[in-house]
Measured scan of single mutants.
Amino acid sequence: EPLWIRPDAPSRCTWQLGRPASESPHHHTAPAKSPKILPDILKKIGDTPMVRINKIGKKFGLKCELLAKCEFFNAGGSVKDRISLRMIEDAERDGTLKPGDTIIEPTSGNTGIGLALAAAVRGYRCIIVMPEKMSSEKVDVLRALGAEIVRTPTNARFDSPESHVGVAWRLKNEIPNSHILDQYRNASNPLAHYDTTADEILQQCDGKLDMLVASVGTGGTITGIARKLKEKCPGCRIIGVDPEGSILAEPEELNQTEQTTYEVEGIGYDFIPTVLDRTVVDKWFKSNDEEAFTFARMLIAQEGLLCGGSAGSTVAVAVKAAQELQEGQRCVVILPDSVRNYMTKFLSDRWMLQKGFLKEEDLTEKKPWWWHLRVQELGLSAPLTVLPTITCGHTIEILREKGFDQAPVVDEAGVILGMVTLGNMLSSLLAGKVQPSDQVGKVIYKQFKQIRLTDTLGRLSHILEMDHFALVVHEQIQYHSTGKSSQRQMVFGVVTAIDLLNFVAAQERDQK
Rank of each mutant, 00 (worst) to 15 (best):
T482L: 14
G414H: 06
A292V: 07
W370H: 03
P336K: 00
A506C: 11
F295K: 12
I390Y: 10
D270Y: 02
Y479N: 13
A321I: 04
L306F: 06
F404I: 13
A301T: 04
E401I: 12
K433L: 14
L335Q: 00
V333N: 00
P436W: 10
E303Q: 06
R330F: 05
S437K: 13
T395C: 06
V443F: 15
E258Q: 14
S481E: 12
L347F: 04
D405C: 08
E361I: 10
I272P: 04
D270A: 02
D438C: 09
Q406R: 03
A505K: 07
V420R: 00
A505Q: 09
S437F: 14
E475R: 10
G403V: 14
K512E: 13
I477L: 15
Q489C: 13
V410H: 14
M490I: 13
Q476L: 15
Q489A: 12
D467H: 11
V317A: 03
V275E: 04
E397V: 10
W369K: 08
T389I: 14
E508C: 12
A407P: 11
G328S: 13
K446A: 06
Y479E: 12
E365P: 11
D438Y: 15
I247A: 09
L471I: 13
L457M: 15
H468I: 14
G403Y: 09
V264P: 00
I416W: 01
R459C: 10
V241Y: 04
T364C: 08
E252V: 12
E360G: 15
L429S: 11
L276T: 02
K402W: 03
S313F: 03
T364K: 12
E401H: 14
I267T: 06
I451G: 08
A382E: 14
W284E: 00
Q256Y: 10
V339H: 05
G483K: 13
G403D: 15
M419T: 15
T274Q: 05
A249C: 02
H474G: 13
V319G: 06
L248V: 03
Y269N: 05
L500I: 13
P251Y: 02
V473I: 04
R340W: 02
K355S: 07
F357G: 02
P436E: 15
K286C: 00
E324M: 11
L306Q: 00
I444C: 15
V495A: 13
I498S: 12
T274S: 07
R509V: 14
V491R: 06
G379S: 12
D411A: 15
K512M: 12
F293T: 00
V420Q: 13
M419V: 15
G414E: 15
L373P: 14
Q507K: 15
D455K: 06
G379H: 12
I300D: 00
L325N: 01
L335H: 00
P436D: 15
C331P: 01
Q489F: 13
W369A: 11
F293S: 00
L380I: 14
V280Y: 11
A316T: 08
D411T: 15
Q259H: 13
V473P: 08
N255Q: 05
Q478L: 13
D510G: 11
R459N: 10
T496Q: 13
A316V: 07
D277G: 04
K345Q: 06
G423V: 04
I396Y: 11
F469S: 13
I398F: 15
D289C: 03
Y479I: 13
A296L: 02
Q329A: 15
G245Y: 00
V420L: 15
R400C: 14
F271I: 01
R350H: 12
A413H: 03
G458L: 06
L460F: 14
M490Q: 15
G356P: 04
L276R: 03
H480F: 13
M298I: 14
P273T: 00
K449N: 11
E465I: 03
Q511E: 13
V491F: 14
Q511I: 11
E360H: 06
D349I: 05
K446N: 15
Q302M: 15
L460W: 01
Q376N: 12
A322I: 05
Q511K: 13
A318H: 01
Y269Q: 02
K355N: 11
I247Y: 08
D455Y: 10
F404A: 08
L453V: 13
W351S: 01
I416P: 06
A470D: 05
A249Q: 05
P251L: 07
I451N: 14
D362Q: 11
L248R: 00
L325Q: 05
A407Y: 13
V410K: 09
L430W: 11
L464I: 15
I267A: 05
P273V: 00
G308C: 01
G441R: 12
S485A: 15
S481P: 06
I498R: 03
T260K: 11
L373S: 06
L380P: 13
H468V: 05
A322H: 01
A497K: 12
L384C: 09
F271A: 01
I396S: 14
Q302F: 13
G441V: 07
L276M: 08
Q435W: 10
I267W: 05
I416D: 05
T294L: 06
Y479V: 13
I498E: 11
L430D: 06
K355H: 13
V317G: 10
G268Q: 01
D282K: 14
E508Q: 13
V410A: 13
V281Y: 06
E263N: 06
H480I: 11
R330G: 03
K366D: 15
I444L: 11
L457A: 02
D510F: 15
A497T: 14
R452C: 14
E265M: 00
E244Y: 10
L347Q: 02
E250Y: 07
Q259F: 13
Q406P: 03
Q323S: 07
Y262I: 01
P368A: 08
E401Q: 15
I498H: 08
F448M: 06
D362P: 11
K345P: 02
P336H: 04
C331F: 01
L353A: 11
H474Y: 15
Q323P: 05
A431Y: 09
V504Q: 08
T456D: 15
F293R: 02
S348M: 09
M490R: 15
E412R: 07
E290S: 14
Q507S: 13
L417G: 14
H474M: 09
R374N: 15
P383I: 10
G414W: 10
P243K: 01
D282I: 04
H372W: 15
V281H: 03
G309Y: 00
T274M: 01
A301Y: 15
L500V: 15
S485Y: 12
K433W: 03
D438I: 13
K446Y: 13
S246C: 03
P336S: 11
V420T: 14
T454A: 04
F346I: 08
L500M: 13
E365L: 10
T344K: 07
R278V: 02
V420E: 13
G308D: 01
V495N: 08
T391D: 03
V434L: 14
F293W: 02
T274L: 05
G432Y: 04
T389D: 14
Y262S: 01
L347T: 02
D277C: 03
R488L: 13
E324V: 15
Q487L: 12
Q487G: 15
D455Q: 10
G312Y: 01
D405H: 10
S485M: 12
E361M: 08
T385G: 11
Q450I: 15
S427D: 09
A506S: 12
T454L: 08
I444Y: 13
T391W: 03
E252K: 15
S437G: 14
S287E: 08
Q511P: 05
L453A: 09
P273W: 00
E291K: 14
P383C: 08
H480T: 09
V434K: 11
L399V: 08
Q450G: 05
G441I: 12
Y342C: 03
V280T: 14
K484G: 08
G418A: 11
Q259W: 06
E258Y: 07
L335F: 10
R488N: 11
T344N: 04
L276F: 07
A413Q: 15
G266C: 04
E465N: 12
T257N: 14
A497G: 11
